[in-house]
Design a protein around this nucleic acid. Structure first.
Length: 515
RNA sequence: GGCGGGGUAGCUCAGUUGGUUAGAGCAUUCGGCUCAUACCCGAAGUGUCGGCGGUUCGAGUCCGCCCCCCGCUACCA
């Protein structure tokens, strides 16, 4: 039964949709998808949650600028996210929107629970306020006591609000971080967080706003809404059924990993665990902060006009080429750079020359020498055994690396096999063997071995490059989806059926002419 | 300022608990091959491992000081 399978719950941030998806969103989501696909293929019961954060002042403002209601705006933009994820092959289990009724109810119930546990109290929130714009401003936004939007003078304003007693969790949080060194990753960010944020002392957080309209009503007598972060973080619970479907909730919670951008690590590593402690809910196992992606070494920004549209790259080349580049080029957890130069080098070098050409040349020979029918596998020699060993050992190493989110390392592993296979062709020279009819059996072994390598490569590649893997699979003559198959099949050899007819297609990755 | 991360071949980076001639990929040059997407295979390299000093039989790897780059430093998703 399902119950015997180990569960794996992975989340992305819920993206703030005051604008369309950019490459940073895509990067984190692709990483989560790889984890989900890998675990699924390795026999785990996976729940993969992503979605959108649709409340707050910025949405309110963006909607106003376009002459829409906030709900109309989010209804429009959410489609862009969902279409983007479809195009990039993202296999989420559920897409949550914070404007859904079930989420709103969850957020309110969470508030009530924490309130009941006496970690929420009434207090005063004081800050800069722009009267004409009717909005609170951050200290960093206010220059010379002027509003950054309208330029008019701002004033100090006091608002009665509700506060969450985060300071009470200082010790519990510190202790948790010490006892669970793997909780916040990468390690460098954990150090930053502990030294700069937690050690100096946590302060209470104002979790209601009476000046903002667009949000979830706080379950209090006064008219006010929940602070967006308090609202947003709860999606990780409501997304798997809390509090209505507790069976599903208990099946998947606690989350195995919250994948997030480094900019929001702090909320996930302090506010979120504190909230959960206050609500007496177990903490997630891991919070992993990814880096930022720069463009030609520069920070991406609309004003610089260097924002990369991930969908344009996916359209022009292929979704898998984008996935490959991001996963291979950038160690997960540090900042990385995107440039057409490096993208094209990866594309031509790794995808066209190494992988694409291996597939194409192998299938071409099979068509030429065996009319596209996979032969028997008589008398493998040590050369074949070496390839077999390399291929069948992949899964063991990959399982270790995936725990560390070491995507580049796993792809390097796969490419070791690809390169080894290219060398094997060179060494065994099937075109020479084919010229001698007495060596027919030898030729069969060589081609059979190549088909086996391609089978393993396709399976290994599937979590990372799903479209490519599926294509290799069908080109090898399989009629079902590769995703009906598991990682353990890479640990077996001589599995591709002799007599199966392949169906070669055009090269998967045509070289980019860079002249 | 404080805290954290990093400075290794032209470029991007690996380098486990200190140990024999410091590695990979890309780019470059030369050679081979022709099944294949002007592709693939092989060979050649180049390095004061940021600087100085110390510990040690022995340090890229440990300690101290200095220089440079990057990140974080509270209610902003």
């Amino acid at each position: 039964m399902q119950e015997t399978k180990k569960k794996f719950y992975v989340t992305t941030p819920i993206y703030y949709i005051n604008d369309v998806p950019h490459i940073g969103h895509a990067y984190t989501t692709i990483g989560a998808d790889v984890l989900a696909r890998f675990k699924r293929m390795d026999g785990w019961d996976v729940f993969f949650l992503t979605g959108t954060d649709e409340h707050g002042q910025k949405i309110e403002k963006a909607a106003k600028e376009r002459g829409l209601t906030p709900q109309q705006l989010t209804d429009q933009i959410v489609v862009r996210f969902q279409e983007a994820w479809k195009k990039l092959g993202i296999t989420y289990s559920r897409f949550i929107r914070t404007t859904e009724i079930s989420h709103k109810r969850a957020a309110q119930m969470f508030f009530e629970k924490v309130f009941k546990n006496q970690f929420i109290y009434k207090g005063h929130y004081e800050g800069w306020y722009c009267l004409p714009d009717e909005k609170f401003l951050l200290p960093s936004e206010v220059i010379n006591e002027k509003c950054p939007d309208c330029g008019r003078p701002v004033e100090r304003l006091k608002e009665e609000n509700y506060f969450f007693s985060m300071s009470k969790f200082q010790n519990a949080l510190t202790q948790y971080l010490e006892e669970h060194p793997e909780f916040v990753q990468p390690l460098s960010r954990k150090n930053e967080l502990v030294n700069n944020f937690i050690k100096p002392g946590l302060t209470d957080v104002c979790i209601t706003r009476s000046s903002v309209q667009w949000g979830i009503a706080a379950p209090v007598p006064e008219k006010s809404i929940l602070y967006v972060w308090f609202d947003a973080l709860i999606n990780y619970l409501s997304g798997i059924g809390w509090p209505d479907d507790l069976e599903t909730f208990h099946r998947y919670w606690p989350a195995d990993v919250h994948l997030i951008g480094k900019d929001i690590l702090r909320f996930h590593a302090t506010l979120w665990p504190a909230m959960l402690l206050a609500a007496e809910i177990p903490l997630p196992k891991k919070v992993f902060g990814t880096g930022f992606i720069t463009m030609n070494g520069q920070k991406m920004s609309k004003s610089l006009g260097n924002v990369i549209d991930p969908l344009a790259i996916a359209d022009q080349y292929s979704p898998d080429a984008l996935r490959y580049f991001l996963l291979r080029e950038i160690p997960f957890g540090v900042d990385g750079d995107f440039s057409m130069e490096s993208f094209q080098l990866r594309f031509n070098g790794d995808l066209a020359n190494d992988l694409g050409n291996l597939i194409h040349r192998s299938l071409s020979m099979l068509e030429r020498y065996f009319d596209g029918v996979i032969p028997e596998n008589p008398n493998p020699s040590p050369a074949e055994t070496e390839l077999k060993t390399l291929a069948t050992q992949y899964a063991t190493q990959a399982r270790l690396q995936i725990e560390e989110m070491a995507f580049p390392a796993i792809l390097t592993l796969i490419w070791t096999l690809v390169k080894r296979a290219n060398k094997y062709i060179e060494d065994s020279a099937p075109w020479k063997v084919a010229a001698d009819s007495a060596q027919r059996a030898r030729l069969q072994t060589i081609l059979y071995t190549l088909m086996e390598v391609l089978r393993v490569v396709a399976l290994a590649l599937a979590p990372f490059m799903p479209f490519t893997a599926e294509s290799i699979w069908s080109q090898l003559g399989f009629s079902d989806s590769i995703f009906n198959h598991g990682l353990e099949e890479t640990e077996e050899w001589a599995k591709i059926p002799s007599g199966q007819k392949i169906s070669k297609k055009n090269p998967l990755f045509p070289r980019i002419d860079r002249s």
